[in-house]
Design a protein around this nucleic acid. Structure first.
Lengths: 210, 210
DNA sequence: AATTCTTGAAATAAAAAGTAAAAAAATATA
DNA sequence: TATATTTTTTTACTTTTTATTTCAAGAATT
């Protein structure tokens, strides 16, 4: 694990994927080095903020030179855990669950889909992106055999709590929650919410008040 | 438009949909009134924060009584614009676009899908949730005829900027951006990002550092 | 060798967010 | 009706978080 001297602030953490995206772009464009000043213009941040952000994780830059794009990109990869990758399962093979399962980009970026589960007998057995939808009943056995880090929960509201509890009790480390509902699990399980309906409501509010 | 004396902070705005959800639940359960204290326990916030949040938009409560669930819910509805609703279109009818189009909950909550557009000749004409996927070419005409507030952009990275510019130039007021890319549009267009890959990376980071 | 860049770290400043508490208003109770 | 209680509203305060500035030191370039 990366050495971390003090707690990194939330704002910084949320910027990391964005840095990662820009670095990937620069790498793509065969840019070898970049200074915080140039990057700041590209990203609409201040140079000093960028330097401070990176310095939370150690000194990746070099005075008089800037940052090496390739190596900064791979540092970010490590920080985000994308280098080793994460195993995932999807629970809930509805529209959204299937869309995520089909989203090949996630595989490329180190999030490996190992299984898809649902309760609906009508779709169990159906293949999505090469994986058969399995019965929820087989989830405990499955998780005992496979090491899975992340459960992607795309089930209806009503069963969300139950599913989250189950996943947590089976040793899942993180939940990516797409249900319009708050999840309560022990502290050793991390929850990241994607509340789509909340998100569009915020958009609506901002449109009204813009 | 609701009277707004001073700028409401971002943190408050982001909590509004959550309040809205909880109020809906209470209404569902036929709860008539609720005090900030009781609500705070339910939601894991302090009573004082809840009162302060609501007071940004005017006094909806009554001393000695608390908040009337029904009327607070409908106030929130107005604040979020859900009462009048928003017309939307989806640009990009891939996996994610189709999943969103099929997500009937949005309709119920005041986001009305008026059209789906794509470039891919193979899927143009196909019906999703009762709407035919239209050719991007017809977008300008379509937007001249229909009053559309929100463009939901679910196209590949490469065309995101172009599509966003187009939508903005045609009078769209808000963009719900699902592309893993930052969008730059004039200030009269609001952008709300749902960067799924950013979100899962943050989850990964947190798992590693939990 | 001198000059120019550019980082990293510490200190500072600013902003945002949350908490607390007094004042006011309505309700409930006796 | 008077009084006690509840609970909001509003303002002020505190804390936390976030961002900026400054500057010494190191590296590259000329």
């Amino acid at each position: 694990m990366a050495i971390q001297y003090k707690k990194v602030s939330d704002a910084v953490i949320k910027r990391l994927p964005r840095y990662f995206r820009y670095l990937a772009e620069l790498k793509e464009a065969n840019v070898q080095r970049i200074s915080s000043g140039v990057l700041s213009e590209k990203m609409g941040l201040t140079a000093s903020q960028i330097r401070q952000d990176f310095s939370c994780f150690g000194g990746f830059g070099q005075q008089g030179y800037g940052y090496n794009v390739e190596s900064l990109h791979s540092e970010l990869k490590k920080i985000l855990g994308v280098d080793k990758g994460f195993n995932t399962i999807i629970i809930g093979a509805g529209n959204l669950g299937q869309a995520i399962a089909n989203h090949s980009k996630f595989e490329k970026r180190g999030y490996f889909l190992k299984g898809i589960f649902d309760l609906d007998a009508k779709i169990i057995g159906k293949k999505i992106n090469g994986l058969e939808i399995m019965n929820m009943d087989s989830l405990p056995d499955f998780l005992r055999k496979e090491k899975v880090d992340i459960a992607i929960i795309t089930v209806p509201r009503e069963v969300t709590a139950e599913v989250a509890d189950l996943a947590a009790s089976l040793g899942i480390k993180g939940i990516w929650n797409f249900s319009a509902m708050d999840i309560k699990v022990p502290d050793d399980v991390v929850v990241e919410n994607v509340h789509l309906s909340d998100s569009i409501m915020v958009l609506g509010y901002r449109i009204k008040n813009n």
